[in-house]
């Protein structure tokens, strides 16, 4: 199994997407199909932007084995009040700055969900949010 770790800073829009870009490079090198690669990096990118947009800082841990890609995103931040509400398309608490960057329309978590084979979210108010995104390599969607 391979493991990669990345750090993400809240508010750092210049570097938002760096981790996703690195992961895309790795998946390409490993000859993962373009379709699966796209699903993984789109989900990861939305999640990475979420950390930049909402949290103070976060870690991304990517584990790749022969069966699946498991991505964990753990952030220190305000947490999500209602995960059910956050999963609803159109619901957003994003700032004006986030909207100016082309995000914050309440599509992030639904987009992640659409591109993940499994998505697990836990969150604690005042502490942070943890996401687990799993994509299976042998399952073309």
């Amino acid at each position: 199994m391979m493991q990669f770790e990345y750090k993400v800073e809240g508010g750092d829009f210049t570097n938002a997407g760096n981790a996703s870009s690195e992961v895309k490079k790795i998946l390409k090198k490993l000859n993962v199909s373009p379709k699966i690669t796209r699903r993984v990096v789109v989900a990861l990118y939305e999640a990475e932007v979420n950390i930049v947009a909402h949290a103070y800082r976060g870690d991304i841990i990517v584990e790749i084995d022969t069966e699946k890609i498991r991505i964990q995103l753990n952030d220190e931040g305000p947490g999500i009040d209602s995960i059910e509400q956050a999963m609803t398309e159109g619901f957003s608490t994003a700032s004006e700055q986030v909207r100016e960057m082309g995000f914050g329309a309440g599509m992030g978590l639904p987009n992640i969900n659409r591109n993940a084979d499994e998505l697990n979210i836990t969150s604690e108010i005042g502490k942070g949010t943890n996401l687990e995104i799993i994509t299976y390599l042998n399952k073309e969607n």
Binding site: G17, G102, M107
Partner: peptide
């Protein structure tokens, strides 16, 4: 950009007024 990320066909072009790194 979240709209763009749902667009999954090859050989496509984006027309936008949003000019930033993202």
């Amino acid at each position: 950009m979240s709209d763009v990320l749902t667009f999954d066909v090859e050989n496509s072009i984006l027309i936008t007024g949003l000019a930033n790194l993202q």
